[in-house]
Design a protein around this nucleic acid. Structure first.
Lengths: 155, 155
DNA sequence: TATTGTTATACTCTATAACTATA
DNA sequence: TATAGTTATAGAGTATAACAATA
């Protein structure tokens, strides 16, 4: 914590990542949410996915999602809704209380991050934003290329 | 993932943070380590703290550290060493195997982050590094100021 | 009395495998 | 047979409270 005033880039990014992650964790915890529960509520803000879709969205096994949704349901944050088109399927939906919680936590968290960035003047914030965006865009592009078939041209 | 090519700064930092965190998680998992276990090994690279000190370093309760160290010990990654000066205390130390694992995982992870940054030319990487450093330093300073008495000057 | 560490207990989060009901 | 979801089970990670040994 009392280290040099200029870190190497890798260390800097790691520390920044822990700072952001820790801030998210703390804000969620204030409302009795774990990071996973917060992610669940966040994902549900604009969707009513089935359990299966939810598992894919969160990158979890379906059995993990069963428990996750169960605990959130017990707290009145989400509701299970039977699908009419497929009697096996269940849709998950935010309750009013769940939505309010998600919105409030997100607002507090965004304010935290803004505060963390407030040490930089506006032009510097914009420069940081531009650099970060370039990294993320390059990363997204690289991932898509990775996912493209390596043996397609002839098949 | 197919979003705009320029995000707002808050979203950008959050996504960057998840990218770094996910990379760390994947590299640790390749060696059968959770992020927490990886942090434990990382912390021990240049220290042999007592359980109590370890708890403070990791921000965990001492009872949590008991279990953490127990599991790492069972896998031959760390060793408990009785303190001579205080018969209650125990020091935790990396084994050779634990150190090798920590070093290898750290190297792979650093290469990952470097690769992620390689989309930026050197001057841009340095600019990013400088901006991130300023944020981290400001944050560290703010935290320390936060801990100073708030009611000293005139109330 | 205070501190160091462990144990007992309980909860969340996660996965695998086996299961039920539906498609 | 295949898919959607749950249950049974197991293990990691976390905390609180109670405890033993030592300071």
């Amino acid at each position: 914590m009392s280290g040099p005033s200029q870190l190497n880039t890798v260390d800097g990014l790691v520390q920044l990542s822990f700072l952001v992650h820790g801030t998210l964790e703390r804000r969620a915890a204030e409302r009795g949410l774990s990071i996973v529960q917060a992610r669940l509520l966040g994902v549900l803000r604009d969707r009513e996915p089935t359990m299966n879709e939810l598992a894919k969205l969160l990158g979890l096994d379906k059995s993990s999602v069963t428990g996750l949704v169960q605990r959130a349901e017990r707290r009145g944050l989400v509701a299970r809704i039977a699908s009419r088109s497929d009697k096996r399927a269940v849709h998950v939906s935010l309750t009013g209380r769940g939505r309010a919680l998600a919105v409030a936590a997100a607002a507090r968290f965004e304010a935290d991050i803004s505060a963390i960035l407030s040490c930089l003047a506006q032009p510097d914030q914009e420069a940081l934003c531009a650099l970060v965006s370039r990294v993320l865009v390059a990363q997204a592009t690289a991932r898509q290329i990775h996912l493209l078939p390596a043996t397609t041209t002839s098949g």
